[in-house]
């Protein structure tokens, strides 16, 4: 799997805000096709490359040139891991909504929204800090991916 270069940490924060909005819309409308699209997006970022994230491009072309540059860089591995965790929840949510198990869909989407919002508002990556816990209880999910 190709390894991504470190990124401007404000890009992922912007992306997390967009994800939060999308997940909120899904919760309010129950529009599972939108959640399916978000699931695909999570999968592309986690398993292929962060460069496939359209919000990253929006950030680079529309926002980054307008704000003060920063030399701070964030490693890509935690970001991709977080996208992988998001993928699992979004997938469960999509399957829930699509098969009529609406409560399951809502719970999974709400959990993904909690993580996205914490990431957007506080820069906190729950999945990354809890990696050891995930690895213990869900070894397949926490398998190192980008090495």
């Amino acid at each position: 799997m190709p390894k991504d270069a470190p990124v401007d940490p404000r890009g992922p924060r912007f992306s997390a805000w967009m994800t939060t909005v999308i997940l909120a819309v899904v919760l309010l409308t129950g529009w599972w096709r939108l959640l399916a699209a978000q699931t695909v997006l999570f999968a592309m970022c986690a398993f292929i490359s962060l460069k496939l994230n359209p919000w990253g491009h929006v950030y680079r072309y529309a926002i980054q040139p307008r704000i003060t540059p920063t030399t701070e860089r964030e490693e890509a591995a935690p970001l991709r891991f977080a996208q992988g965790v998001g993928f699992v929840f979004a997938l469960i949510g999509t399957l829930g909504y699509a098969t009529g198990l609406t409560t399951l869909g809502m719970v999974a989407t709400a959990l993904a929204l909690v993580a996205a919002l914490l990431n957007a508002a506080l820069g906190l990556c729950l999945g990354c800090e809890m990696y050891l816990l995930l690895r213990r209880y869900a070894p397949a999910l926490a398998r190192p991916q980008s090495q």
């Binding site: 919760l27 809502m106 719970v107 709400a110 929204l113 909690v114």
Partner: peptide, 23 residues
Amino acid sequence: MTGVWALLGALAVAGAIGVLLKV
């Protein structure tokens, strides 16, 4: 309507986790 409650619940949980972790 349930979706609204789910959204409010998620916001409350995120707020609680955020405060707890900051503390």
